[in-house]
Design a protein around this nucleic acid. Sequence first.
DNA 1: CGGCTCGGTTAACGATGGTTAACCGACGGG
DNA 2: CCCGTCGGTTAACCATCGTTAACCGAGCCG
Lengths: 184, 184
Amino acid sequence: MTPRRRQILDTAADLFAARGFHGVSVGDIGAAVGISGPALYKHFAGKEDILGQCLLHASERLLEGARALTADGGETVPGDALSQLIAFHTDFALSQPSLIVVQEREWGALGEQARAQVRERQLAYIDVWTRALRPHRPELSAAQARAAVQAAFGLLNSTPHSARISRTAMRDLLIRMARAALVT
Amino acid sequence: MTPRRRQILDTAADLFAARGFHGVSVGDIGAAVGISGPALYKHFAGKEDILGQCLLHASERLLEGARALTADGGETVPGDALSQLIAFHTDFALSQPSLIVVQEREWGALGEQARAQVRERQLAYIDVWTRALRPHRPELSAAQARAAVQAAFGLLNSTPHSARISRTAMRDLLIRMARAALVT
DNA sequence: CGGCTCGGTTAACGATGGTTAACCGACGGG
DNA sequence: CCCGTCGGTTAACCATCGTTAACCGAGCCG
């Protein structure tokens, strides 16, 4: 992927996160990268395609990261799988808040095919988490475990809404809270 | 407030929560209540005014409910203030998910004055929570306590994103997780 | 040198949005 | 009975949006 495409996707994600997909015009995106309006069509098929690339990219990075952590034979790394997932997701949310926000709230604006791809990755990501949670909470049904995982996402993804403490303090706080919420 | 106004606000909140403020047209709102388009201007000053009333109403109900629970001399009710706030917020989120979603993500679409009013109530609501949390976590700074409260909101407000378990089971799960996240 | 591709530009188009205007039936009170 | 208000309607306005068209300079390759 060319650097220009990456730049467009990054700034578009920021704009979508701040004002919502329908609250951002292609002119806004172009202006934010220093070009104007229709020039975006040299890089993407359209506005919805830009959102789709953002979401595909984000959901893929999350899923691949989670799978890398919990791959069979990954027992050599320290700590249990759940703690690693919590740390991984926290770091992602702290370093890419816009992607987190957009992936959480704008997937409904996609066309059918792109939405299906994103949803598939998101569900697979939830599944990795749910499997990691099961050993700690054997009394939970599968549906309850999924609900608990999504509640934990809500907690970890709240990072864009605050930000008044240092990043390391926030990381520590979120990890501690998520672990307590999930395994207690 | 006339029943028609309330009906418009309720269905508008649902639409805003589902597709975002800019993703809903006044025609959509009108059609959802059985009238069409410009008839809404007999009840509200404009589209932004509808959103403003939704948010004012929601933030006021949250703040008043929280203040009623933690009013001085309210020591007669059972349990500590924090647990009561958690239960109150959980019930609100479960019964009015659209208001929760809209209040969380669409306040940026308001004009300056309405946004200021909503933000004021939201900050006051956070403040009530933070004061209730302090006794349980005296080691946290004020900023850390606020961040923890907002993370707990993220957890409790995640209820619209899932929903595959019964409401009572969800209520129990959320309350348990929030309490664990906050006081552990 | 000549031409092709790449990544821009501005102009224009059609659709849609929010808002206003003009009109109108129901209905309740003097 | 008449009239004003209430809550609707449809038509029209203007701005904005996403998208396409037409054009153009820079650079590279043959």
